[in-house]
Nucleic acid binder design. Structure first.
Lengths: 160, 160
DNA sequence: CCGCTTTAGTTTAGGTTTAAAGCAAAAAGG
DNA sequence: CCTTTTTGCTTTAAACCTAAACTAAAGCGG
């Protein structure tokens, strides 16, 4: 078992040869499959979407609410994107928006009472779906994976 | 070190408590940050997009070409989605499409000569970006991560 | 006060994505 | 053959997403 006897690679110039590349492709694949599942579940069972859930989750964690910019940074999405998602949640009465008294340009968005109740329902189901997927994953391996992903994230966040 | 002494969880009903949930969130985060980087790089340096690169990569691996359906399954995206991406690549002269002699409904899409040359340029840069990101990741940890992600993917693919 | 720059958000144009509806070729079943 | 169903793909409607242009409030320097 030398360092180089994996599967193929050798002199093929491309073809997902190196370990980094395969790992990256696999990571993206896992994320994509999982997201697909979650999106379908949210759509079918609750008639909502993953991005809207993400916004609600971010707001739930901060009872005082967040500005649009803070939301955008928290969710890693563009500023303009948050605008439309928040607007939809607003139409549904799940979030409310109040002008920041310190800065009239900025609005503080927060969950309404209905929004908090709604989020708890969604989050419960969300947790259950995730737990189901990982039911057969040994806890010790899961801890290792969590640790490695944490390392990876700090690598990715560096030299952005 | 009991089974339950991680960090918080306990009776907080939500808040990304369980290990599965945190792992999942971290995985999505890594994928998102990395994709953002790649997308920006492709945009800035080559004036193209990640999905277009994905299509070209899938076609590069199969010199004989792929049908639209095969492409869609390979890339885990919807059927209709492939249509527009292939059309754009076709306009740029990077892929060509020929009617399947066995089935007149189906078209076999393949890279043109220009498309292959273009892909090699893109893939070289892509590989370099990935290698840069993982430069400081110890090879042994990378191998572990690859293995764990492979396990995870098979869990995710099951009971779809 | 008055310009200049910065900052917070929205709007716009364009690309990605899906599900659902539609279309046409193929296959199946009399 | 001819009808029905299935299958491969495209189109459409709607959501998501980004970058870039824009608006408006703050802040800063005179």
């Amino acid at each position: 078992m030398t360092a180089d006897s994996e599967t193929s690679d050798e002199r093929s110039p491309i073809g997902a040869g190196s370990t980094e590349l395969r790992m990256w492709v696999r990571l993206l694949g896992c994320a994509k499959i999982g997201e697909k599942r979650l999106r379908r579940n949210f759509e079918e069972q609750f008639d909502t979407t993953l991005p809207r859930f993400d916004v609600m989750a971010a707001l739930y964690r901060v009872p005082g609410g967040l500005s649009m910019g803070a939301l955008s940074r928290a969710l890693l999405v563009s500023n303009g994107n948050v605008t439309s998602i928040v607007r939809q949640l607003q139409v549904q009465g799940l979030v409310q928006s109040a002008v920041d008294p310190q800065d009239a340009r900025s609005a503080i968005v927060s969950l309404t009472k209905a929004g908090r109740a709604r989020f708890l329902t969604l989050a419960e189901a969300h947790h259950q779906w995730i737990a189901d997927v990982f039911r057969d994953f040994p806890p010790e391996r899961m801890a290792t994976l969590l640790e490695l992903l944490t390392d990876l994230r700090s690598l990715l966040s560096k030299e952005n």
